[in-house]
Computed example of a mutant assay.
Amino acid sequence: MRDLRTRHIQETYKAIWAENKIRQQNREAADEALAAERAAHKAWRTCTIRPRPPQLRHNWNAAKAALRTARSKPRHITGPGSQHRMNNTLSAALQDAFAEKLISQNWAKTVVLPKYLRPKPMVWTEERVARWRATGKKPGKVMVWTPEQTGTFLDAVADHRLYPMFHLMVFRGLRRGEVAGLPWSETNLKIGTVHISEQLVAAWYDVWEDTPKSDSGVRTISLDSHTHELLKLWRQRQQAECEEWNHAYEQWQQNRKPQPDEPSHKTPKEPWKDAGLVFTWQDGRAYHPQYLSQAFDRLIKRVNMPPIRLHDLRHCAATLSLAAGIHMKKIQALLGHSRYSLTADTYTSVLPQFEKAEAEAPVALVPRAGKQQEPQTTPDVPATT
């Protein structure tokens, strides 16, 4: 640590920037390979000649192989936000060393990083939806559904296994890791509350338990009546699945061996795993947080909704609460934000219909003599006598 200087840390970020350029090229190459694979597949599928020319199948196989090769290269870009979080973590560690007089200065504080502005949620208005359907491009990184769009999605997935989880996230604003790691021991179905004290964190295939993102993330949330009833029904379903799974496991052990072609989910080779969590697979195992995001993305495409991330359901909860007249301080407590300014800065823009009412309110306060004239669209013409 005595030899550490700002230039050493700066060189690390320069290496990240250089790697980002390579990964951006890999991402573009993967997109091109995907387009070529789809074109080759379409040419083979739409060919009217029977039998199809072997060259079409050969071209499709070659395009699939090229796509696999392109996707095998690293494509994840470490953006400005990630770089700032990395530097903040390093700075906090060096600040501890500086306080203990192990180093003479916190060298991470003088590092130069790209400018980063926290993205603010944008609502999927009719105009933005039409533009997205025409071009396939999202207007922003963080998008939020309108109440009507949210209702359409919930109605469309009401029969899905994860519907209670989606409902909980939409209206109570839990993070992905918080719903994945929510234990029954912190869920009170008698009075309808959940205590958020831990979450599941995923890095690639590794998953571990951790505390929420900030100290204020540890919070108790009251459930609305609908979500409360859904969790009661989900508890009953989970208990029934546990009994069915253990019964099938006992039958398999006593009477027969699994057939080679029999699906593994129908031949339980182990008893039901009691992870103690609210949302689990049929065998009691915890959901991988990344699987929840993938399942959500597939559902959005299936019901043809404008795309948002699973994490954006949390923004939907905040926006709906703000539109319903709930104070920003209450929304901060609901989301578990460490600072009031973070909540206020993120959700300064609300749904369009409420913005319209806010725009009209100041006009109504100004007294006018007589009826206000409508703006003219054509030049005044002198009256003729």
Rank of each mutant, 00 (worst) to 15 (best):
L230M: 09
L56C: 02
P164H: 06
Y249S: 09
S72F: 05
K138M: 03
A156K: 08
H76A: 15
A30W: 07
W184Q: 01
E241H: 00
K232Q: 10
L342M: 11
K356V: 11
L174M: 03
H58A: 15
D274N: 12
W208H: 13
V366K: 09
A29R: 07
R71G: 05
R52T: 07
V111T: 04
T110Q: 14
E241P: 00
P306W: 00
S225C: 10
G151K: 10
N20H: 06
S264K: 15
R23Y: 04
A130V: 02
R285Q: 14
L154W: 07
E32F: 06
V144C: 06
V201R: 04
T343N: 04
R172L: 13
R219L: 00
E250I: 13
I9Q: 06
H247Q: 15
G173W: 00
H167R: 14
F296G: 07
V142W: 08
L174E: 03
R23Q: 03
P54L: 07
A324L: 01
L223N: 00
D224Q: 01
A286I: 01
V170Q: 02
K137L: 13
K64D: 02
I221S: 03
K109A: 14
Q236N: 11
A93F: 14
D261F: 08
T46N: 11
G173Y: 00
N304D: 12
H265K: 14
L94V: 03
H288T: 11
Q282H: 13
L310Y: 04
M305G: 02
L90N: 00
R219T: 00
Q294P: 07
A92D: 11
E209H: 11
S222N: 12
V111H: 04
G177E: 03
A134T: 02
V218S: 15
K109M: 11
W132Y: 10
A92F: 06
C242D: 03
P268R: 04
P74H: 06
Q199T: 05
A286G: 11
T227W: 04
V278T: 00
I22Y: 08
T385L: 12
F296Y: 04
H84K: 11
T78L: 12
R45T: 12
V112N: 12
F166V: 09
I77L: 05
A324H: 09
L299E: 11
D31A: 15
Y163K: 01
L168D: 07
S225Y: 02
E229I: 01
I49Y: 10
E28K: 14
P51E: 02
L113K: 02
T6D: 00
W184S: 03
H247Y: 14
Q376H: 14
A295T: 14
P139D: 07
A295D: 10
R23W: 02
T6A: 05
K301A: 13
D380L: 15
R5M: 10
P80R: 07
P164W: 02
W124H: 09
D155G: 11
K213C: 05
R172Q: 15
M328V: 15
E244F: 08
E127G: 06
E186A: 12
A35F: 04
P80Q: 07
K73L: 12
E241L: 04
A318W: 00
H167W: 08
A156H: 03
Y347C: 01
Q236M: 13
F153I: 00
N59W: 08
